[in-house]
Each structure stands twice: as structure tokens, then as C-alpha cells.
Simulated assay, not measured.
Amino acid sequence: MIQKLALLMALLGMLSACGGGDGTNPVNNPGTDDGDDGTELPDGTDGATAADPIIRYEEQSENGNGYASDISYDPATDTFSVNNLGFDGANVYTRDNQVAWLGPFAVYEATETFYDSMTGAPISQIADYKAIYGVSSSGQTNFAIVRTGGYIDYGFGGFVYARNGSVTLPTTGQAAYSGDYAGLRDFSGRDGIEYVTGDMEMSIDFEDFDSGDAVSGYVYNRRVYDTAGNDVTNDILVAMGNGATSLPTLVFDIGPGVTQDNGEIAGTLRSNTFDANGVATKYEEGNYYAVLSGANAEEVVGVIVVDSNDPRYGVDVRETGGFILYR
């Protein structure tokens, strides 16, 4: 059995409000702050209020997630430094040479060859370490996701998202948000990794429920690509059968207890397929995590993690996507 540690990707180098001014900004697991009575929040900032910056990252779990540390971004060279991952080259991720962007979000990769420091002999590294980074137009929020397709089971991976300032939450009315979604898909049962893109909408009712605001959300128009940038969505649709013409829409479950007074949000979501009689069958399910930011709660950043069975291969696939949305 392969023993794995997971990669937490903490990207703070561009955000001086979150650390030192040298462009390194190491992250050293600052603790946890669970949701009040809804879905548990990931690890991160402890006891934050609406006036505070917040960072959340993938928690420690039995499959090894959440153990990486000392992650930093160098804006001068457009590279990541990543510590505590075996066989990912020299711990530096550079812009991907085949898929540099997924919509507005940047894509990075680790090198797949390292050289013996004494003899110069080449050493093959774990394949397909990929990273996606998104930052809002204001710089108030950002996210990063890292996964690898180099293992038969889910490989090393992790995510981070952050608010770099404060939020003022409305107490009445509703708000509509829209923007971009992009992520990485890795497998349990086969190697390989894929990209995914989509459109996303979110709405918040700031007046109800009494126990946490009501939040709805949709991720739609999803397309899947291989690491060379080829669109493989149709291969999935053919394997799904029943005349499928698009990937199912991810839909937030609506209920109380998903929001907090500091602007954080966490809940569950799912997608369904429908047969010729309109009968629904669950296709994907998982969690979403987010945080609002701005004087008018004008933007939101977050991460979605859903699992399903890939109809092409009959194995489980995990999709980890990030989003930045605006009012």
C-alpha cells in the first residue's frame, strides 16, 4: 500500500496583508475553527471575526491530506516553492508548458526529472503534479489547488483559499454572485489527472434562515480537458449514455446553518442524472467552502470537492475546483 502525504498549497506571496513583505510568506498550520452547526470548515484561522483576514486549507485526514507546510509564491519569477512532497523535482512549480490558463486562473506544474546531486544521474519524479491559482481582481481573495495523477489511488494534494481583509455583511436583502470555476480531477483506481472548467452562480438570502443565511449555488457548463488541453468531455458523455449532452450541474443543498457572522460559508452539494422518465440518480456529491469579502460583501472565494464514479473507467474520480465570484 502506498503511503502518502498530502500537499497543502498555501499561496500568500502576493498578499502583503497576510504576512511579511519579502514575497515568501510561509504557512505553518495556524489551527482550526469549525462551523457553528453546519458542514465543518477546513483547518485554518482560529476565532476570526468579519474584520479579520481568513485562510483555510485542506485538513489532515487518514489519506494523508494536510501535511505539507512552508509553501510560498514568488511573484518575481511566477513560481511556487512547495515543501514536504516526495519526488516533485526541486520543490519549485513553474507555469505549465501546455495549459498555462484555465479561464482566468493560472496553471503550474512540477518538473518530472531531478538529477543526483553527486553523479548527475537523472531520477524520474512522480508524474503530473499540477497546481491552479486564482486571485480576484481586487486582490482581496485567492485560492490554490494542487493534485497529482502519479498514483493509482488519490495522490498527494490539497487546497487553500483566503480572504486578505475584512467583510461587511448585509443584514437585509439578497445578493447574486457569478464568475468562473476551474479545478483538477484525480482518480482512485488509475493514474492520470484532468482539468475542469465551468461557470458558477451563487445567491445569498441575508434575511433567512434565522440560523445562518440561505445560500444557493450552481456550477454548470463544465468541460473536462486532458493535460495536453484536449477536450475529453464528449468521451465522458458517451460513457454516461442516455443521450447525455452536458455534464450534470452541481447544485448546492439549501438549508440552515451554512453561514457564519464572519462571512464564512460551508455546506454540501450534489449533481444528478435523469433517465427518460425524469427519474433522478445521484451522480456526484461533496462539500463546498467559501468566504465573503469586501465593504459590500462584493466577492466570494472558495473551493468545491466532489466525488463520483467515472463512467469511462469504472473508478472513483475526485474533482477539486476553485471559484471567485462577484456581485
Rank of each mutant, 00 (worst) to 15 (best):
I2M: 07
Q3L: 13
K4A: 11
K4C: 07
L7Q: 15
L8T: 15
M9F: 07
G13F: 05
M14S: 12
L15C: 14
A17M: 01
A17S: 13
G19M: 04
G19R: 03
D22Y: 11
T24M: 09
T24D: 11
N25S: 14
P30T: 02
G35K: 01
D36Q: 12
P42C: 03
T45Q: 06
A51P: 05
D52W: 00
I55K: 03
I55H: 09
E58N: 09
S61G: 15
G64L: 04
N65F: 12
N65G: 15
G66P: 13
A68R: 06
S69A: 15
Y73S: 12
T79H: 10
F80W: 09
N84C: 10
N84Q: 13
F87W: 07
D88L: 07
T94D: 09
N97L: 08
V99P: 10
G103P: 08
P104R: 00
V107G: 06
Y108E: 06
E109P: 05
E109V: 03
T113C: 08
F114K: 14
M118K: 14
T119H: 09
A121E: 11
A121R: 01
Q125L: 03
I126A: 12
I126V: 15
A127P: 14
A131K: 01
I132P: 11
Y133K: 02
V135P: 06
V135R: 14
S138W: 00
Q140H: 13
R147L: 11
T148G: 07
G149R: 00
G149K: 00
Y154C: 06
G157S: 13
F159P: 06
A162E: 09
T168M: 03
T172S: 15
Q174D: 08
D180R: 06
R185V: 11
D186L: 00
D191W: 02
G192F: 00
I193A: 11
Y195I: 00
V196S: 13
I204N: 06
I204W: 02
D205K: 04
D208T: 12
D208M: 05
D213P: 02
D213M: 04
A214T: 03
S216F: 08
S216L: 11
S216A: 15
Y218M: 10
Y220L: 04
Y220W: 02
R222S: 14
R222I: 02
R223N: 11
R223D: 10
V224R: 08
D226A: 01
N230P: 01
D231M: 04
T233H: 05
T233G: 08
D235F: 01
I236F: 12
I236V: 15
A239E: 09
M240I: 04
G243N: 05
G243H: 06
S246H: 10
L250Y: 13
I254N: 14
N262E: 04
E264V: 08
R270T: 10
F274D: 05
D275K: 04
N277P: 05
V279F: 11
E284T: 15
E285M: 10
Y288A: 14
Y288T: 12
Y289D: 12
V291M: 03
N296K: 04
V303W: 02
Y313H: 08
G314Y: 03
G314L: 01
G314K: 01
V315A: 08
V317H: 10
R318D: 04
R318I: 01
T320I: 03
T320M: 11
G322H: 03
I324A: 04
